[in-house]
Amino acid sequence: MTGFALGAEQEEWCGHLRALAADRLRPLADKGEPGRVNRPLLAALGELGLLERVFTSGALELCLLRESLAYGCTEAETALALQGLGAHPVLSSGTAEQRARWLPQVRAGRAVAAFALSEPGAGSDAAALALQAVRDGGAGSGSGHGDGGAGGWRLSGEKCWISNAPEADFYTVFARTGEGPAARGVTAFLVPADRPGLSGEPLDMLSPHPIGRLSFDGVPVGPQDLLGEPGRGFRVAMDTLNLFRPSVGAFAVGMARAALDATLAYTAVRPAFGGVLGDLQAVGHRVAEMATRTEAARLLVYAAAGAYDAGSPDVPRRSAMAKLLATETAQYVVDHAVQLHGAVALQRGHLLEHLYREVRAPRIYEGASEVQRTIIAKELYR
């Protein structure tokens, strides 16, 4: 990439991904059941080698992957991203045994991963986590999961609004172990879904993928389940989010570009007042604004990804800026695309009706827009 213009190979790859999304993945997504994990779709992402790319790509390539898939099939993009979000802590902080057990299954689309951070009283304020990990000094769990002594913990509490719950095969769980106050007392664990005491229920959300609540009733975990060191789990979470926040922005850019292209095609032929909609200055100016904001968001996302790949110290600020601008821009572009299409865009099954539902959540998850502004301000004043 020269500056922020993609090279010929990158453009060709993105075009290939958009075609795959439309031709191979969209039909599988359409057959899925809303609110359920689409395992055939995940398997296809594995067979096509796209899940492998999540774990071997840099931040920029991850952004291009997510943007291109989002353009043609948002469900495929989200399924891929959730695999990466849930399993990246295993890649970056897991043991050799954990990586060998889970990552090949995740890459193949056979095991479903989930990132369990949010709680009923701790969403954007991740340092306020309340899920307790209490030292287990008893005789052990009797299941072979704990260490049978003082080296283990019991997890008690709830997680809420967890993507892929309760259908995931394992969860990256963040719990309070108490080594210090606030963020300094959080530890990350890898918790398989079949652990005794772990249960969950789906939530009826405005989302095509599953989102649920998890209940931990003395769930046993041991040293072999740690992701990183005790008391360092908040860093595991933030390292993951700093990588994925720009690519959430890329997801948003993909949706914005799809909405923009649909609007250009529609307004160029829709008869209105003796011409077509695109002839009206008000419409042309609106489309120009949509295009300009989309391009600005795209450039900021690529810049943030480039900073991450270069190991820049200002990654938190750049990641927050990219997610903030791109998700807010996508909301603006999709909303105005609906307005310019009129009633046809509100019909069930229309691309824009789909995007209108999809575009809202990214402004909330992985840190709401207000949290991104707080991060940016803190980094500026640091």
Rank of each mutant, 00 (worst) to 15 (best):
T267E: 14
G151A: 15
P166C: 10
V315M: 10
Q132G: 04
T267A: 12
A76D: 13
G7D: 10
P210Q: 09
L48K: 00
F273I: 04
T2G: 14
A272E: 14
R154A: 12
L41M: 09
Y365C: 04
A87D: 13
A337L: 02
Y302M: 15
L214H: 07
M255W: 06
A307K: 13
G200Y: 03
L324D: 01
V134C: 08
A250N: 06
S207W: 07
D225Y: 07
L80N: 00
P271A: 06
P104C: 09
L91P: 11
T374R: 12
V333E: 03
V112N: 09
A265R: 13
A259L: 04
A111D: 03
T78Q: 11
G306S: 13
G222K: 02
G284I: 08
I375W: 01
P220L: 12
S163Q: 08
S141D: 15
D217Y: 00
R235G: 07
V287Q: 09
A122M: 05
L42S: 07
G254H: 05
W102P: 15
E328W: 00
A268G: 11
S68M: 02
P89H: 02
L20F: 04
G148M: 15
S156M: 04
N242E: 07
G84E: 00
R360W: 01
Y266F: 13
A361Y: 01
G306Y: 06
W153K: 11
A100L: 13
E379K: 04
P104S: 10
L25F: 02
E229S: 08
G222T: 14
R135F: 05
L50Q: 01
E201H: 04
A130I: 05
H209F: 08
Q132E: 13
T95F: 08
L355E: 15
L190R: 12
L65P: 01
L325I: 03
L325D: 05
L82A: 03
A76N: 09
A304T: 13
G306V: 15
C73M: 05
C14I: 07
P202I: 01
L42T: 01
S118L: 00
L45F: 03
A258F: 02
P313M: 06
A368C: 00
F170L: 15
I162F: 04
E167P: 14
A70W: 04
E167D: 12
R18L: 01
G306R: 11
A268R: 15
A122K: 06
A126E: 11
A79Q: 14
T292L: 14
A259V: 02
L198F: 12
L85P: 01
G233Q: 08
R232P: 15
G3I: 09
G109L: 03
H209C: 14
G367D: 00
G7V: 04
Q10P: 05
V191I: 09
H341E: 08
A256S: 13
P208W: 05
T56W: 03
P34I: 00
R257T: 07
A296G: 10
M238F: 00
A29H: 06
F273M: 10
A305S: 09
G231H: 10
Y332H: 08
A150D: 15
R107L: 02
L20D: 00
R293Q: 15
L277V: 02
L380Y: 13
A272V: 07
A368L: 01
E97V: 14
R257S: 11
G218W: 11
R348V: 14
L264H: 13
V338Y: 00
K323D: 05
T187P: 14
G278V: 05
